[in-house]
Simulated assay, not measured.
Amino acid sequence: MFPIDFGWTGNRCRAMIPAVDVGGKVMRKPNSMKGLEELGRVRLSQNFFLRDFLHSEIADFYRIPNIPEDPDLAIEAGKRLCEELLEPLEATFGRLHIRSGYRSPAVNRFGNENKLNCSTNAATSAHHIWDMRDFDGCMGAAVCIAVPWMIDHYHDESDWQRLAWWIHDHLPYASLCFFPKLWAFNIQWHERPKRVIQSYISPRGILTKPGMANWEGNHSKWYAGFSIACSAARLFESKGRCNTLNCWIILSLNRFRFKELCSEADAISDVTVAFDIAVVKRPRRLVLLARMPVEP
């Protein structure tokens, strides 16, 4: 899948992808395997469940349970993270790779004390520790992810900025922090977003924050190649076998977006996209069979 800019905002995304609640009942910390299994089944958004975020190498290797102390708070913060940030990212760029999600206070404390790339619990509250509010009493949640589409299509060390600016212009993130391996990055949702981007990759340091000259305005020049036309052109160039290619494009779309998407595609001059070949409905998805002629 290649990225398609839906122009989503946090509020609009929340309206299109409702979270599934847990029946209004209070969730308690599991004290059995069955209870943990049930907690993992809690659906945070259309494509994400709580279980997706409970894996931790620290917890597994050192045998420390990575279980929320306050499941209700973890679920509430996790829903906002998934609905407002991860869902539009996955719908645009395809499958996301989750590197590190929720950390229990015990797991994070151990990681910090043993220099395993964890900050203090106070600094990690309302971040990787979803079920602990920060000093101001605010709720938040963060996850470290990698975007395979970016790894496949960009290779310069500084290309992480393309994705960073796309997120800055389109999503209600609170903070971003990029790392060298796989261009993985922490993305945070928070009740009071500061919208700060920093990186441990060149150029290192703060990319933008409130008060900097580059914080406001449009940054589309950085992600111009994220359009349908450019992505399709690169796809066909990489194949290099024929002038016409049938490719399956799986999009997490509401069915009522279909006509709008076709209209946007028809407006592109440098590639012809015919979406009228086939439309197959699957649960929660539309699968479009698209034939895209390109010049040799």
Score class of each variant (00 low, 15 high):
residue 49 F to Q: 07
residue 55 H to D: 00
residue 105 P to W: 01
residue 193 P to W: 00
residue 255 R to N: 04
residue 63 R to G: 05
residue 214 N to D: 13
residue 174 A to W: 01
residue 247 C to I: 14
residue 44 L to E: 01
residue 12 R to S: 05
residue 269 S to L: 12
residue 224 A to W: 07
residue 14 R to P: 02
residue 149 W to Y: 15
residue 166 W to I: 00
residue 4 I to M: 12
residue 243 N to G: 15
residue 245 L to K: 05
residue 18 P to Q: 13
residue 251 L to I: 14
residue 119 S to R: 09
residue 221 K to L: 07
residue 188 Q to K: 08
residue 270 D to F: 10
residue 44 L to H: 02
residue 18 P to H: 11
residue 5 D to V: 08
residue 8 W to E: 02
residue 198 Q to T: 12
residue 209 K to C: 09
residue 247 C to Y: 11
residue 203 P to A: 10
residue 123 A to S: 00
residue 191 E to C: 04
residue 37 E to M: 09
residue 22 V to L: 01
residue 257 R to G: 01
residue 106 A to P: 04
residue 233 A to R: 14
residue 217 G to V: 10
residue 235 L to I: 11
residue 97 H to E: 11
residue 50 L to H: 03
residue 31 N to R: 13
residue 61 F to W: 03
residue 226 F to E: 02
residue 161 Q to V: 12
residue 23 G to E: 11
residue 192 R to M: 13
residue 43 R to W: 05
residue 250 I to S: 13
residue 157 E to G: 13
residue 116 L to M: 14
residue 61 F to Y: 11
residue 117 N to T: 04
residue 40 G to E: 00
residue 136 D to N: 14
residue 33 M to E: 12
residue 207 L to A: 09
residue 129 I to F: 02
residue 121 N to S: 03
residue 65 P to M: 08
residue 88 P to M: 06
residue 84 E to Y: 00
residue 109 R to M: 10
residue 260 E to V: 08
residue 72 D to R: 01
residue 92 T to W: 00
residue 77 A to L: 00
residue 122 A to W: 00
residue 161 Q to K: 15
residue 191 E to Q: 13
residue 141 A to C: 09
residue 37 E to H: 12
residue 99 R to S: 10
residue 33 M to Q: 13
residue 53 F to H: 04
residue 261 L to T: 06
